[in-house]
Simulated assay, not measured.
Amino acid sequence: MKGMHIVHTEASCGWGGQELRILSEASGLIGRGHRVTLLCPPESRIFAEATKFGVPVVALPIARKKLRGARALRAWLKAHRPDVVNTHSSTDAWLTALAGLGWKDAPPTVRTRHISAPTPTNGLTRWLYTQATRYIVTTGEKLRGELIARNGYPAAMITSVPTGIDDSRFGPADKAAARRALGLAEDAHYLGIVATLRSWKGHLHLLKAYAGLERPGWNLLVVGDGPMRGVLEDKARELGLADRVTFAGHREDPEQWLRAMDIFCLPSYANEGVPQAIVQAMLTALPIVTTPVGSICEAVEADASALVVPPQDPATLRLALQVMIDDPARAQALGAAARQRALANFTREAMLDRMEAIFRQLAEAGR
């Protein structure tokens, strides 16, 4: 079957699960014989990271909603004539829509909606999503349902495709070996979180829960970097936790850190689809404590493959962590169930199959 030319646009200069999803998906489809190009601002982190994933990248001035960006996009798209364009953030979605105005054979556009923040219900946004965009992909079924029920968008043009994780990279392994490789104590116990340090990931609530955790020998691993780092380090010192919390920063080897953990916790309170870190922890067979935010509970099932607690509730979060610590047999069973659920539903190959089919359908309809 003939390969397609797929273009991704990303205006965000940040770094997190959304950007990783774009690069993982793009590199996977390149591996399947497609031509994929990423268009993004030259100052963005994703521009610097793309080559590590083997993804061709072109710098365009699309970090802001300015006419210059729309003109640059239109000129590039007209010169290269891709089969389909996949937009990812508000700014590049609007610029791509403006670039297509009055262009009769403009390439069809897919809008991927990564987060659970409400989409505006005004007429201009409706035009963007249902007229300027040919198809919508969400990273969770709950996000899809909200666009249908709250925004009134046609169900037939929206599909949920959760981010898939490479199960050949993430999986259970020798904890002692992982800890030795990371310079961690082999005989200690570790609960941890892997996430960009943003407020809504709930790190502050985790620190408060951990501060009252009366379980000697348990340490906290905070893997990731971001705008909240200084605030979190200050809070750890304020709570007297500085010698028991490791701020590992951004890591290229999150699989090693997950293998070193005994329990994984993600106490998010907003803006989640199906978080990649949750699926990574599931594939690693870790016992998980999390919250029912966004589409998290499409990944884990409460009491079957994770313990689920209310968001922004450190006291209840602490109790759930204590349950995991005090009942290792139950914790192990939850971790094993989580791994099987992830293998059945959230692999990278499953994501690539579904996205490839969507792009193919639109590309062939546009010919």
Rank of each mutant, 00 (worst) to 15 (best):
I6W: 07
E10W: 00
L38M: 08
E43K: 14
F47S: 11
E49K: 03
T51K: 10
F53A: 14
A63N: 01
L67V: 06
L73F: 08
H80P: 01
D83I: 01
V85C: 07
N86W: 02
W94D: 01
T96L: 05
A99E: 03
L101S: 03
T109S: 00
I115V: 12
T125A: 04
T125C: 02
T130G: 04
R134M: 05
R134N: 14
I136A: 02
V137W: 10
V137E: 11
E141G: 01
K142H: 08
E146V: 11
E146N: 04
A149I: 10
A149P: 05
R150Y: 06
R150Q: 14
Y153I: 13
I158V: 08
A173H: 12
K175Q: 15
D187N: 07
L197M: 13
W200I: 09
G202H: 03
H203P: 02
K208A: 15
A209K: 01
Y210S: 03
P216A: 08
G217H: 13
G217C: 12
L220V: 14
V223T: 07
E233F: 02
E233S: 00
A242W: 06
H250W: 15
L258W: 13
M261Y: 07
F264E: 09
N271H: 07
A277W: 07
Q280H: 05
T284L: 03
T284Y: 05
V289L: 08
V293E: 09
G294F: 14
C297K: 00
E301H: 05
V309Q: 05
V309R: 07
M324W: 01
A329V: 13
A331E: 06
A331H: 07
A333T: 02
L343E: 15
A350N: 13
A357L: 10
A363W: 08
A363G: 08
